[in-house]
Design a binder for these strands. Structure first.
Lengths: 219, 219
DNA sequence: AATTATTTTTAGACTAGCCTAAAAATTGAT
DNA sequence: ATCAATTTTTAGGCTAGTCTAAAAATAATT
């Protein structure tokens, strides 16, 4: 049996180590879990005892196949619940994360799979992040930060890098949801901001920060 | 903040004490929670400290208004999730309880209320039990155990007393789901079993136990 | 009413998960 | 290569929640 606390640590390790293939350090885990390094060390020992991580003192950790499977299932559940909350219950995309953090810990294989079917086997969540299927396979998407588009190039909004409420609400305000078509009109050399046409009509000024945190698929 | 363990105790106290208006004893709570009397005493102290129960040593406990509100909200969440699992995800009525036990602990008022709306504000769960509304009000139903019907009387199945899988699966097998019309044909004096017509055609032999655990609304 | 049986509480111990403060190991800089 | 800075681990302690065994209170029986 894996406790909720253990599950959350596995997710943190996944998020950190899987990003670059390099092992997750104690401090990095403590930062994402908002706890102390000492607590992390405690938990790493427990997870290593259960063969969910490969742990060498002072050397950071990597997930074992078992640990990776559990982390992947958690991400699958989290993102499916996010789709449910948005599509079925009508929550906004900046409201779904916290609830999904709770719902992802509900145990029951049949539940996840039925939910998946009910939602029509979505491949991406409301933030554009890929949803692993029942076998843990990911469908990665060809996407780049908006900042890489050259003037004249067009793309479609497919996801975000920053998942904060502040960013998501700002995007809502700008009308920049998933699926919106954008065209890079001009890059301002002075501050790296960009003039962009959205949805074929609105013209927007976007800061460099926004352009770095918004993913588009070029078309 | 109320922990999941505390929530479960409040539900148990509600289930025991609210049934007869009499206070719940330590042993009764231990039995429904599948734990020891010592653990119950510990928890009762904590709940009393939080003013969720009125606790007098050796005298059993009653819920305070705060405790009753929390218990009612839990039952509301539990039963709404049960409706969701059955109606939307297609689970059978003997499979929904365990999952709802987990889902009921997910925190978030907006979630419950949106779920309620999404399901069309149902008044009864898949077992025929009433679902409290957002203000904690119950819609009680006029129903009697099938065993009380006289030969010739008719009724509609509205709920069950026994929630066990064994009973629910047997009812499925007999075709006795909620809403099915039944007519009492004959009571067998020898063993108190009954000959019943279901859905206007099938003739069934039901033991006294079944007749006691099945609720009907006479029409 | 006194004794026995039952119920409930207390006492003490255990685990999971967290903390702070101090020690140990590693990394970086000269 | 040594010393300083940083990171990580250890040591010890805390709370919530559970347990067993023993003590105390209540209920039942004669």
């Amino acid at each position: 049996m894996v406790s909720q606390a253990e599950e959350n640590y596995l997710k943190a390790v996944f998020a950190i180590s899987e990003k670059e293939g390099k092992s997750a350090t104690t401090n990095a885990i403590a930062a994402t879990m908002q706890t102390t390094a000492a607590s992390v060390t405690d938990m790493l020992k427990r997870l290593a005892d259960k063969n969910l991580i490969a742990y060498e003192k002072y050397r950071g950790v990597l997930l074992t196949p078992d640990g990776r499977r559990i982390a992947t299932e958690l991400i699958r559940k989290h993102r499916l619940w996010e789709v449910f909350l948005l599509e079925k219950l009508g929550f906004a995309w900046d409201e779904v994360h916290e609830l999904a953090e709770q719902l992802e810990h509900v145990q029951g294989d049949a539940l996840v799979d039925r939910l998946d079917a009910y939602l029509g086997y979505p491949k991406y969540d409301p933030h554009g992040d890929p949803i692993p299927d029942a076998q843990g396979r990911w469908t990665l998407r060809q996407q780049v930060p908006l900042v890489t588009l050259q003037p004249g190039e067009r793309g479609t909004v497919t996801g975000v890098q920053d998942h904060s409420s502040a960013f998501l609400q700002y995007l809502d305000q700008l009308g920049l949801g998933l699926g919106v078509e954008v065209e890079m009109l001009e890059r301002i050399p002075y501050d790296q901001s960009a003039r962009v046409r959205a949805a074929g009509k609105t013209e927007l000024m976007l800061s460099e920060k926004v352009c770095q945190n918004l993913f588009v698929k070029t078309n």
